[in-house]
Amino acid sequence: MNNSYLPYFLCLVFFCVGLYGVLRKRNIIKIIIGLVICEYAANLFLVLVGYKMGGRSPLYSPDQSILDMVDPLPQALVLTSIVIGLATTALVVGIAIRIYEKYGTFDITKISKLKG
């Protein structure tokens, strides 16, 4: 395998680490952390997509050429995606606190009022 693809694969491995957390852990907080890791992996992947070897940050200033910049678009997209992630995380933490209030536990095997 070509070595230059390695970061992308590591990124997907990172995603799978998050997925492992979501699927295997019993504690709600750990599940949330797994979800957040998944999200960061996706964001990291998006940034890596726009990266160019030896590129500089995509800021336009009067005395520099725009040819050696990294791709600025994924960075803008990641910012949007982070904001969305913030909203989701805030909501899920709120729900987790409420669940703790109702059930008195964070263990999902004990939280089972629903059948499915």
């Binding site: 904001v83 913030l86 805030a90 933490v93 709120g94 606190i97 409420r98 703790y100 209030e101």
Partner: peptide
């Protein structure tokens, strides 16, 4: 929007925690 929204989220989470402790 973001500043007050974020502060609001923080505040709401804090207040939630306090109500559950009081019970």
């Amino acid at each position: 929007k973001v500043g007050l929204g974020l502060f609001g989220i923080f505040l709401v989470l804090i207040l939630l925690k306090f109500t559950s402790k009081d019970e």
